[in-house]
Simulated assay, not measured.
Amino acid sequence: MKIVDVCAFYSPRGGGVRTYVEQKLKIGPQLGHEIVIVAPGDEDSVIERGPGARIVFLRSPRFPLDRKYWYFNEAERLHAVLDAEAPDFVEATSPWRSASLVADWPGAAPRSLVMHADPLSAYAYRWFGPIFSRETIDRQFSMFWEHLRRNSRRFDHVVCANADLARRLRDGGVANTATIAMGVEPGCFSPDLRDAGLRARLLQACELPETATLLLAVGRLAPEKRWPMVVDAVNAASRDTPIGLVMLGEGREQRMILRHISGNPHIRLLSPERDRRRFARILASADALVHGCEAETFCMVAAEARASGVPVVVPDAGGALDHAQDGAGFSYTACDPASAAQAIRAAAISRPRPATTARTMDEHFEDLFATYAATAAVPRQAA
């Protein structure tokens, strides 16, 4: 099949969507499919990624709330690209305006909406959850729910990476939901990459001895990631036992997070490690991964930690929780720094090395593309 992914939140500077896209461009052709990513950017351009894989950029405005991203602003130009590509299957990988643009395209190809984001958890529930119940918040955000319900009826599938998100969408009247879990990059992550020397150097950067616990935190420096809460939890837990926290990330909240760290020598905020092999060694060398976001649709870094034999400390809501199951980590009450501190203490004391059974992205794409092929085999008319 020729699969076109209309990917509104692809950024060459990183993020979970970029990691997913890069693996799709690699694995898709290996499975016999042609993969075309259509993404907004500063200029019209095409980047070839080898046989059967390329990225088509459409000149678009920068996203005002995060200048690392762009947004599609011309339906006609996007539809013209889809017409020219003549795909067998089309994906929209953002639930916002681009989903409506793909739904409005009059072509005959079947299409899916892939939920790489959980906007209600990331924004509405986070903003108003301390005051109102979710039922009240859902009523106040009924326009967004209706947007999802309306578009879901125009897509063959609404693909979720975890069953909890699919259930919430289904309970909210979103049609055609399907759960197809993601996975980790095959052959990249392993407990065999644990490096005692690297671990010692990271703890030394935190001004701590090798006997201390090394925590790792990875992700965009954005409000929904709740890094200040993670910092508070680590500070509280470290009153009982020496703990160093190395954070890898960048984003618009960097200055605020540095102020929150407030010069604590045991917490270091470093730039993201873009070399995947080196990152895999860093991850395997940690004693635990700590994460703060309850709005993850999958939480790739937690899956990578599990594949590295590293326990996770994650909230009890969202996709990250899946990776703490079967003794692979510790969960805490979402948004609660005291509960997170308790879970961090438990991880620091026990330091388990969980089993490394982990689903791979090969398995994810095999299941995803098989679902698409079965849908494409059913004749349909253009809109």
Rank of each mutant, 00 (worst) to 15 (best):
Gly107Met: 04
Glu304Gln: 12
Asp66Gly: 05
Arg149Glu: 01
Cys335Lys: 06
Thr211Phe: 10
Ala196Leu: 07
Pro191Ile: 02
Pro265Cys: 09
Ala109Arg: 01
Asp240Pro: 15
Ala212Ile: 03
Arg59Gly: 10
Trp96Leu: 14
Pro354Asp: 02
Arg67Pro: 12
Arg239Cys: 11
Trp127Ala: 09
Pro29Ile: 13
Trp127Leu: 07
His323Thr: 04
Asp138Asn: 13
Gly52Val: 14
Val56Asn: 12
Ile55Arg: 04
Val56Met: 10
Gly129Gln: 02
Ile35Asp: 02
Leu78Thr: 09
Glu185Leu: 11
Arg168Ile: 13
Ile349Asp: 03
Arg199Met: 02
Ile282Ala: 00
Ser331Val: 09
His364Gln: 04
Arg149Asn: 01
Asp367Leu: 05
Cys206Ala: 11
Leu148Tyr: 01
Leu245His: 00
Ala39Pro: 07
Leu165Arg: 14
Cys335Thr: 14
Ile131Arg: 08
Met115Ala: 11
Thr136Cys: 07
Glu294Val: 07
Leu208Met: 07
Tyr372Cys: 03
Arg194Cys: 03
Tyr10Ile: 09
Leu203Ile: 09
Thr357Glu: 12
Phe298Trp: 10
Phe298Val: 01
Arg194Ala: 14
Asp275Glu: 03
Arg134Asn: 07
Arg380Asp: 02
Ala175Ser: 04
Phe89Pro: 14
Asp5Tyr: 14
Cys293Ala: 15
Arg13Asn: 11
Ile267Thr: 12
Phe369Asn: 01
Gly172Met: 09
Val114Cys: 08
Leu203Gly: 05
Ser238Asn: 08
Val56Trp: 07
Ala334Glu: 06
Ala39Glu: 07
Arg268Gln: 12
Arg276Val: 13
Pro352Lys: 00
Ile55Leu: 08
Glu22Leu: 12
Glu185Gln: 08
Pro186Gln: 00
Glu91Pro: 10
Ile35Arg: 00
Arg167Ser: 15
Thr211His: 10
Val378Trp: 07
Val159Ala: 07
Asp5Glu: 05
Cys206Gly: 09
Arg239Lys: 11
Arg97Pro: 06
Ala99Arg: 00
Gly52Ser: 04
Arg126Asp: 05
His116Trp: 13
Gly14Val: 08
Ser308Asn: 01
Leu215Ser: 00
Glu34Ser: 06
Arg77Ile: 10
Leu245Gly: 10
Leu78Asn: 03
Ser331Gly: 00
Gly14Ser: 02
Ser133Ile: 11
Thr177Gly: 12
Thr93Gly: 08
Gly251Ser: 07
Ser133Gly: 10
Ser238Asp: 05
Thr93Met: 13
Ile3Trp: 02
Glu74Thr: 14
Asn264Lys: 09
His266Met: 04
